[in-house]
């Protein structure tokens, strides 16, 4: 029974460690930091997404960044956003994954990494979002 108390104590220490380090790298003992960042009432809210032109000629359709669409979630793209901005060819990986998962669907020919920026004032959204292109990639077959 003594080992059980020791394991429980270790677990609590591990949880506290992850929390104080403010890192979720130590999964499952990481910081419970989802939605923990307090956003400025007069700041900006950013939202990232990917648009694509398709083989059938459709322009700028929204790429499904989720488990069943491309397998890569929007939050995952945002979590690695620096890599995507530095090297837009990483979008090729997403196009290839989409082709592998949904070979029957209209495939992507050109991809655009986009960001919408909403301005807040005193907690209210003001005006239309500003739309910024962070990168683009011509898909290679």
């Amino acid at each position: 029974m003594a080992w059980r108390l020791a394991v429980a104590a270790l677990g609590l220490v591990a949880l506290l460690h992850g929390t104080l380090r403010d890192s979720d790298d130590f999964f499952p003992f990481g910081s419970m930091a989802q939605y923990a960042t307090g956003h400025d009432l007069n700041g900006q809210t950013r939202s990232t997404y990917i648009l694509a032109d398709t083989e059938s000629g459709q322009e700028k359709v929204r790429v499904p960044l989720n488990a069943t669409g491309t397998g890569i979630g929007r939050a995952e793209v945002e979590g690695q956003l620096g890599r995507f901005i530095e090297d837009p060819s990483l979008m090729q990986v997403i196009a290839d994954a989409y082709r592998a998962i949904h070979p029957e669907r209209d495939q992507y020919t050109h991809m655009y990494l986009m960001r919408d920026i909403y301005q807040l004032e005193n907690g209210y959204v003001v005006g239309e979002p500003e739309r910024v292109k962070l990168g683009e990639w011509k898909v290679v077959r």
């Binding site: 929390t19 923990a36 700041g43 807040l120 907690g123």
Partner: peptide
Amino acid sequence: GAALAKWVRNGSPFMWGNSAVLTWA
């Protein structure tokens, strides 16, 4: 732990309550 994370990340225990986090979400 979520409350502690909000404290650690924002530098004070209750700052998060007055932020625009739900608007952002």
